[in-house]
């Protein structure tokens, strides 16, 4: 075994008191992401294949493997 290897220590459970804080952080992150996603959606419309309906309908593959 190489010297880099170390013993396994199991991480401790996070204390329950942090939950409210964690929820607030998640909400904050959610807001941030929403704003970012607004920009992303505009960019998606620019690159999304034209005539989506036809493109998707025509996408037929033979089963593989």
């Amino acid at each position: 075994m190489s010297e880099q290897e170390r013993k396994v220590k199991r991480p401790k459970e996070s204390p329950k008191g942090d939950e409210a804080q964690a929820t607030a952080a998640v909400t904050e992150k959610g807001k941030e992401l929403k704003e970012r996603m607004d920009e992303v959606i505009d960019e998606i419309d620019e690159v999304l294949e034209e005539n989506s309906e036809e493109f998707v309908r025509n996408y037929v593959q033979r089963g593989g493997e």
Binding site: I41, V47, L48, S52, F55, V56
Partner: peptide, 24 residues
């Protein structure tokens, strides 16, 4: 990604752009 798109463009799963997102 799909949820954000549907919310912003006010479309549902039946819209072919959603299937296109799924593929692309």
């Amino acid at each position: 990604l799909i949820r954000s798109y549907m919310e912003r463009r006010k479309v549902g799963f039946e819209d072919q752009r959603i299937s296109m997102l799924d593929l692309q």
